[in-house]
Design a protein around this nucleic acid. Structure first.
Lengths: 205, 205
DNA sequence: GTCTATACCGGGATAGAC
DNA sequence: GTCTATCCCGGTATAGAC
């Protein structure tokens, strides 16, 4: 499988371009992130960049994949408690607050990837399933006995993920929207409805 | 205020163009809805069309406004019961299932309108507020006495709207997603958590 | 296998004739 | 108020240098 040293060089170049793409998106916003601009910042020509990624869509897909890898660390321990997963989830959402450009990229791409021909289509379907299964499993494990069987954990996961994306949309539109706060409220509603609230109920009367 | 006959003519032309734009989006998908194509279908030149709307963004903003007017009929009666509003809401969502092109337009535009300079920015902010207030008021009126004061109805509205948008995104990605089903489940969760479930609880034991 | 220069093309905007 | 002609910008395809 070993080829020439150029492989390593190419991989490094790709990586550098991805990082610069991220930097541009973050510093100048999604709108400024044209192929030409990213190439300029990365110190390469337009076509030089495209040599590595083929199309802009591919490039951006890779950017998201890279980002998911970083965020994914939190979903590592498979047997985490519901409360742990919830707070980890909220932490990611809060962190997103500091990278609006990436959130915009994510949201836009998730719409464009709607088309089955889009290079990121499979990526999003898979991402959906992986995260959904993880959430569903955690919810299932935390379910009180008297409701288990009457609740579909994967439906809970679907709602949570949908709410998250919708909140990101709204936050992009209006930065005053408190994403984490709303999600936390949703979690608490689920807790009381599903009996997963462990010990801590809110302090009202 | 009366001017020349051309006013009526112009208004009629605008209206015709809007309808044709809707038709193209619906029949050929959002991707096909270029200014050139819409102009062609409407029997006018590219620049002729732009004369009436200025930019493509403006045109699409008007399309959404028109659509909201039609959907808005359901939110008419201000003192409707929670259950009525819920089922009306679900009906709209179900109807959207038959017009994927419009759902895509809505979703895409809501992202692009993120930019405060975008012509649809105010439109979305206002839409957000109007619908949110309506939902919040209905929830507030239905709240059980022992939880009122501990629940923020506008937060409930935010979550419902966010979930709706997120579900639309997911449904565009994967048509198997049951938007109405998920929303109904969410409503039921709120019912049990907030005590707004009136009489009908599910039939489990 | 890595890259540059150039040319191309689709889509939206603008100037100005009618 | 309508349209033709033109321009601009961004992404893509091709040819070929290193």
């Amino acid at each position: 499988m070993a080829k020439r040293g150029s492989y390593a060089k190419s991989a490094a170049r790709r990586d550098e371009i991805l990082r610069q793409a991220l930097a541009v998106i973050d510093a100048e916003g999604y709108g400024a992130a044209s192929v030409a601009r990213i190439a300029e910042v990365a110190g390469i020509s337009k076509t030089g960049l495209l040599h590595h990624f083929g199309t802009k869509e591919n490039l951006f897909t890779e950017v998201l994949r890279l980002r998911d890898e970083l965020d994914g660390s939190m979903f590592e321990h498979p047997n985490a408690e519901l409360a742990d997963v919830e707070s980890a989830y909220l932490r990611v959402v809060e962190r997103n607050t500091r990278i609006p450009g990436l959130v915009e990229l994510f949201t836009r791409l998730s719409i464009e990837a709607t088309d089955p021909e889009h290079p990121a289509h499979e990526f999003f379907l898979r991402r959906e399933k992986v995260i959904g299964d993880r959430i569903a499993a955690t919810v299932d494990a935390a379910l009180a006995d008297d409701v288990r069987g009457n609740v579909d954990p994967s439906l809970v996961a679907l709602i949570v993920m949908a709410a998250t994306d919708g909140l990101q949309q709204r936050w992009l539109l209006d930065p005053n929207v408190d994403m984490a706060g709303a999600l936390e409220a949703l979690f608490r509603v689920f807790d009381t409805a599903l009996g997963t609230g462990s010990a801590q109920r809110e302090d009202h009367e």
